[in-house]
Nucleic acid binder design. Structure first.
Lengths: 146, 146
DNA sequence: ATTCATTGTGAGCTTAGGTAACAGTGAGCT
DNA sequence: AGCTCACTGTTACCTAAGCTCACAATGAAT
């Protein structure tokens, strides 16, 4: 208590902040009919030039492959992506964005923007910039003990 | 894609960072036999001078009261806290830290410190300071639409 | 006394993730 | 050819953490 423990408090703040972010995100995503994790997956899919494999997504999301399956299930049921077997290697499945998916993505970004705005409201543009570069530096590394 | 969307990326980084933090935390807490949320609750209990009520904890944790019940259940089963009925108002239950609880808290802080160290390793002391003050400012407000 | 607000909890659900086992496929090797 | 081994995704189950809804007990106020 009397100890400074700055790093501990830092972690506390970080986690609290993310809790709020999660909540705001969920709130804004609700009317779109998509969960935050699905949103993240969808955005990730859109980042690729060519349709990614499940394994690619799992790695990029820092998640076990099994977790991707469920998310893709939901998104496919919602019609925003579809699974396409790769002709050159019948083990892999490519995840392709549908037109509906692209439509949803637009809504998504808007919702996300609003959520972030809610949470980051107290920060000025410069402060966000600053925070951004700190996070960039922080996430640049390979991640702890991947 | 071509849009900057700095805030969006900022959120992305934040969430990724917290994901790592969660994982590291869980990893270090595992041998102590306590989950991250329980850890948070325990630390929160320790912050009070007088034993807090369930409702106090819920509010401070920014969580619905029902969520606290489960956590206290687990901690009580582990012997680190105990429920004490408040004599002056028989609706309220005070959460008291036991000696075992204090013992666990020490282990906890150590584990937490290690987890944070893992994740924040790339940052210098000054950078952490900077990050800390940004987060302080960010969390100072009443929170978005409480 | 009756109504209303507070306080904690039982029951049940959802999201997000994880493990373990497994089937299908490709690749390399004698 | 066969035989083994690594890779890819999925089935089946488990956990953590949180939520809503309903409710019982208690206190406060009219």
């Amino acid at each position: 208590m009397t100890a400074p423990d700055t790093s501990g408090q830092l972690a506390e703040q970080l986690l609290r902040l993310t809790r709020r972010l999660h909540r705001a995100q969920k709130h804004y995503l609700d009317p779109v009919g998509i969960t935050p994790a699905q949103s993240r997956l969808l955005r990730t899919v859109a980042h690729y030039d060519h349709p990614p494999r499940m394994a690619d997504l799992a790695q990029r999301l820092e998640v076990v492959p099994r977790a991707v399956t469920t998310l893709v299930d939901a998104l496919e049921a919602g019609g925003s992506v579809c699974r396409v077997p790769d002709p050159s290697n019948r083990r892999v499945i490519r995840i392709e964005l549908t037109d509906e998916g692209r439509r949803i993505l637009r809504k998504l970004r808007e919702a996300r923007r609003a959520a972030v705005e809610d949470v980051l409201a107290p920060l000025s543009a410069e402060q966000r910039e600053q925070l951004g570069s700190l996070l960039d530096e922080l996430m640049a590394g390979p991640g702890p003990a991947c």
